[in-house]
Simulated scan of single mutants.
Amino acid sequence: MQIDDVDRRILRHLMADPSQSNADLAERAGLTTATCWRRIEKMQAEGVLQGRQAIINWRALGWEVEVSLRFTLDKTNPRSFDQFLEAARQVPEVIEIQTFLGQTDVRLNVIARDMAHYQQIYRSQILSLPHIQETDALMLISKVKDSTELPL
């Protein structure tokens, strides 16, 4: 889908405050409420705008540790990726799963309340995931930039 400057303006205002009402969004974008709503519906239908979501700060809820685990899988079994991903989805503390081409096959982002909790998750749930050939852990120290905004 091609978007124009008006669509970009709507998207910029939505990224800045996704909880605003359609009337407020239309006013900020310099449109009538009906026009703004039609453009949003069109962008949703085309898959450009996939919805609005609540972003929860899990650190504020007591989850203090975030670890990025990188895995190389044993690819001698043709179902190794599928079986690994299926099992990883069942670990509640895994908040993100990514697959790659290259030396790393899969990356899991894991959160825990503290280091003792992480150690328990790692030993009881992560190490039992199928088809692990190699793993590497990176503990998050700080996020320098964490944005979902696009340069529109």
Rank of each mutant, 00 (worst) to 15 (best):
I3A: 14
I10H: 11
L11V: 10
H13G: 00
H13K: 15
A16R: 15
D17Y: 04
D17I: 07
D17R: 09
D17K: 08
D17V: 05
S21L: 05
A23M: 10
A23P: 00
D24R: 13
L25H: 08
L25E: 06
L25Q: 05
A26I: 03
E27R: 15
L31V: 01
T33I: 06
T33C: 02
T33F: 08
T35G: 11
T35N: 10
C36Q: 00
W37V: 02
I40N: 03
E41Y: 08
K42L: 07
M43V: 03
Q44T: 09
A45V: 00
E46N: 07
G47P: 07
L49V: 01
L49I: 02
G51A: 02
R52T: 04
Q53W: 01
I55G: 02
I56M: 12
W63E: 12
W63F: 15
V65K: 12
V67W: 06
V67K: 03
R70M: 09
F71G: 01
F71I: 02
D74T: 14
D74Y: 11
T76C: 00
R79P: 01
S80H: 04
F81G: 02
D82N: 03
A88K: 00
R89V: 00
R89T: 00
Q90W: 00
V91S: 03
P92C: 07
E93M: 08
E93T: 02
E93W: 05
E93R: 02
V94I: 11
I97N: 04
I97M: 08
Q98S: 13
Q98Y: 13
T99P: 04
F100A: 09
F100E: 06
L101K: 09
L101N: 08
L101V: 12
T104D: 08
V106C: 01
V106K: 01
L108F: 10
N109M: 11
N109A: 14
V110Q: 05
I111R: 06
A112G: 08
H117I: 01
Y118H: 05
Y118Q: 02
Q119L: 04
Q119H: 09
Q120V: 10
Q120M: 11
I121K: 03
Y122S: 06
Y122A: 05
S124F: 12
S124N: 15
I126D: 05
L127K: 11
I132M: 04
I132N: 02
Q133C: 09
T135K: 12
D136A: 12
A137C: 05
A137Q: 06
L138E: 09
M139W: 11
L140Y: 10
L140F: 08
I141V: 14
I141E: 13
S142I: 05
V144Q: 15
D146Y: 15
E149C: 09
E149M: 13
L150Q: 11
L150P: 00
L152C: 09
